[in-house]
Design a protein around this nucleic acid. Sequence first.
RNA 1: CGGGGCGUAGCGCAGUUUGGUUAGCGCGCUUGGUUCGGGACCAAGAGGUCGCCGGUUCGAAUCCGGCCGCCCCGACCA
Length: 572
Amino acid sequence: MKWSKAFIPTLKEDPKEAESASHKLLLRGGFVRQHQSGVYIFLPLGWKIMLKIINIVREEMNRIGAQEMLLPSLTASELWEESGRWESFGSDMFRLKDRKDKDMALAPTHEEIMADIARNSIRSYRDLPQIWYQIQTKFRDEPRPRSGILRVREFIMKDSYSFDTSWEGLDESYEKHREAYIRIFKRSGLRFRVVRASSGLMGGSASEEFMVPSPAGEDVLAVCDNCGYAANLEVAKGIPDPIPESPFKKREKVHTPDVKSVEEVSAFLKVSPSLIVKSLVYMVGDDPYLVLIRGDHDVNEAKLSSAFGGEVRLAEPGEVMDLFGVQVGFVGPIGIKAKGIIADLALKGGRGMVVGANEEDHHIVGVNLEEDIEISRFEDIRSVKEGDKCENCGSPLRIEKAIEVGHIFKLGTRYSESMGVYYTAQDGSRKPIIMGSYGIGIGRIMAAACEIYHDEKGISWPINIAPYEVVLLEIDHRKTGDRAGELYEDLLKRGVDVIWDDRDAGAGFKFKDAELIGIPIIAVISERKLKEGKLEIQFRRDGQSMDVNFDEAGAAIAEIVRELKEKDAGRT
RNA sequence: CGGGGCGUAGCGCAGUUUGGUUAGCGCGCUUGGUUCGGGACCAAGAGGUCGCCGGUUCGAAUCCGGCCGCCCCGACCA
């Protein structure tokens, strides 16, 4: 491509709506434009990157024997009703009606469609296993799209689905995906980690996420640098500091005027926050439950809802007042008429603790949890904190933010049973197909690469997903145009993805553009170097440069590209 | 959905508090000339229903009411 003919509308100034690095840079570099909140246009440069990513994904999926298909985005409500997700997806699902008033949805994911294909066409164990995938646009009406292309309402995703006759088969399909995903993210040049994850609303058992550590990420991980344990905070486990010896040996009610929050109680009674028990009222359906957690810990609603096996909601202060006749700050587990009391594991064995008295301006101190309170059950319902000890090796855990780029799930029979996806086994019996589901956010790979590889000058793409591998940059096109043209043709013949900046513009201007859009290799053609028979090669990532003989430049560049591709795909 | 901010030329902004007649600035764009290793210079131009609707007023970008859109924080989320 000649730059003079290319549509690369770069911007000199940061667009005001952009905050995160990837958002600003993708807009400034002429990769994308926003069409609406959470809906983006991919301009030629941005789409070129998406295609390169898709290519990598496709190659790796095909390598594990997965078969690509194209599914509808416009889907009938019936399918969603069968699985129960017409209801449970709620307003995240884009819904519409056709001219005959039939309910439809723009598919947010495709489990139901895939399950439908399977139940219609798979009869026998002989037809299994299968892995099917699709790479296409999905729709979710996110409550708040943000960070440019990172959280959007219309996005391209690779989704694959595995169908097996046994749990062992599912394990194999899952493992194949795990390996394919590792190859995909390596080839894309990302730094990432595989973490344990929650399976959430999708249903199913095991699940892992592929995470790119970045402050721009929306997910939070707990990681152990010593043994490599890593998990999404939604499921992360850790060993908290022990509860200290309590000064309260006797159970008694104390006057705590207007002392409500943990900090206030802790300061007022002069005890560690870990001796205080926070009592929170959660609604599960219409039933109020009391949730107990240490004062220095936070409830993890993801864990809580899996402990309850359904949606939970923190009660409003007004609701608590109506239910128990006391302000939220003084609610306590003794003598409360909740549906049940669930306590965090870290509270087990707590002695001499402080709890709300269910009476205005009073707390009870010296409470021995297991003797004094009727706790229905202990569960792990707290969020791991920075500094908690790793369960495997005892080293301190670190908390970090990350961008989720992929997620693999063992679904099991959640969809096959609700939707009737059965096959006939070897012994003639009818059995549900065991499913798995595996997603990759294509645009997220692009955004994540941008977040982790940028500097003041712009983006610095990993070469395997860069919009071009090489830019031929002429200092003065009028003086070197002919020689540049020859080199350009040579590079094309050698299969190098090159853009030739043949514009009649100042050198500085061209350098700024090349660095902004992040092309990994900048080949500088100047009259000065040409007289010495040389060509200068600069590397975007580290700013290093070297000279090569102009006569052998084509071969030299092709070789450098090859090396850089291997090196870039080798990091983790 | 709660809180905050913004909407004026393609982009970034000033002007709005205190209403006043041709609505400015920088970048970009067009034409001509000069320049050419880090976002060049000179000259001449083009470009705006001031988000939309309604109201107040002799007069509205500016005041009042309603609506729409966008961003950020939080809540939510496979």
